[in-house]
Measured scan of single mutants.
Amino acid sequence: EPLWIRPDAPSRCTWQLGRPASESPHHHTAPAKSPKILPDILKKIGDTPMVRINKIGKKFGLKCELLAKCEFFNAGGSVKDRISLRMIEDAERDGTLKPGDTIIEPTSGNTGIGLALAAAVRGYRCIIVMPEKMSSEKVDVLRALGAEIVRTPTNARFDSPESHVGVAWRLKNEIPNSHILDQYRNASNPLAHYDTTADEILQQCDGKLDMLVASVGTGGTITGIARKLKEKCPGCRIIGVDPEGSILAEPEELNQTEQTTYEVEGIGYDFIPTVLDRTVVDKWFKSNDEEAFTFARMLIAQEGLLCGGSAGSTVAVAVKAAQELQEGQRCVVILPDSVRNYMTKFLSDRWMLQKGFLKEEDLTEKKPWWWHLRVQELGLSAPLTVLPTITCGHTIEILREKGFDQAPVVDEAGVILGMVTLGNMLSSLLAGKVQPSDQVGKVIYKQFKQIRLTDTLGRLSHILEMDHFALVVHEQIQYHSTGKSSQRQMVFGVVTAIDLLNFVAAQERDQK
Rank of each mutant, 00 (worst) to 15 (best):
D510Q: 02
T274V: 04
Q354M: 08
L335N: 08
F293A: 02
L430Y: 11
S486T: 14
S428N: 09
V494L: 13
G312R: 07
D405Y: 08
A249N: 02
L325K: 07
S287L: 09
F346L: 09
V339S: 05
Q259C: 09
S246A: 15
W369V: 09
D438K: 15
Y262F: 08
V504N: 15
W284M: 02
A318E: 07
E360W: 14
S246I: 04
S381A: 15
L347S: 11
N255T: 02
T314C: 02
G418R: 06
A413Q: 13
N424R: 15
V241C: 14
I398R: 08
V409Y: 09
H462G: 12
D467F: 14
E397N: 13
F404T: 08
A249S: 02
P408S: 06
G414Y: 09
A292P: 09
T279G: 09
A311R: 02
K449D: 12
L387Y: 10
D438A: 02
A431H: 02
L325V: 02
E291A: 14
E263T: 06
V472C: 09
V440E: 05
G356W: 06
F448Q: 15
K512S: 15
D499W: 02
A407Y: 11
I238V: 13
A301C: 15
C392T: 12
Y269I: 02
E253L: 08
E263I: 05
Q447S: 09
P368L: 15
V281M: 13
G493Y: 14
Q489V: 13
L430P: 15
L387N: 09
C392R: 02
K283E: 12
T496F: 12
G393R: 13
I451W: 02
L325D: 02
R278K: 10
V473F: 13
E377I: 08
L335R: 02
F448N: 15
D362C: 02
D405G: 06
E361C: 10
K345P: 06
D289W: 06
T389W: 02
M352G: 04
G304F: 02
E377L: 11
G328E: 02
Q323W: 11
G268D: 02
K446F: 11
Y479C: 11
V473I: 02
T456I: 08
H372C: 13
L325N: 02
M490A: 07
A407C: 12
I239S: 07
I390P: 06
T260I: 13
E361F: 10
G458A: 14
G356F: 02
M343E: 05
T395S: 11
V281H: 07
I267W: 06
F448G: 15
A505F: 13
V280N: 06
G432M: 02
Q511G: 14
L306S: 04
D411H: 08
L373R: 08
T496Q: 14
I267A: 07
L429S: 10
E258S: 09
A296Y: 05
M419W: 11
K442P: 12
E475G: 15
Q323I: 06
G418Q: 09
E401F: 11
G308Y: 02
E360T: 07
D289S: 02
D411C: 12
L363N: 07
W370L: 13
D282I: 05
I267R: 02
T314F: 07
D467W: 10
P273S: 04
E361T: 14
Q256M: 08
V410S: 10
T294C: 07
E397R: 14
E265L: 02
A413Y: 11
R400L: 10
F293Y: 02
I396F: 09
Y479M: 14
Q450P: 02
C331D: 02
L387P: 15
K442I: 13
V241Y: 02
T391P: 14
V409W: 02
I444H: 08
S485H: 02
L384A: 09
E365T: 14
F469M: 02
F492W: 12
D282V: 10
E244P: 10
A292F: 02
H474F: 10
E303A: 11
A318L: 04
M298N: 10
P243A: 07
E327M: 02
A470V: 13
V415M: 08
Y342V: 02
G403V: 12
E244L: 02
E263H: 09
I247V: 12
D411N: 10
Q447R: 12
V386M: 10
T482Y: 10
M425F: 11
R330M: 15
L347I: 12
G304T: 04
I238N: 04
L430F: 15
L500D: 02
I398P: 06
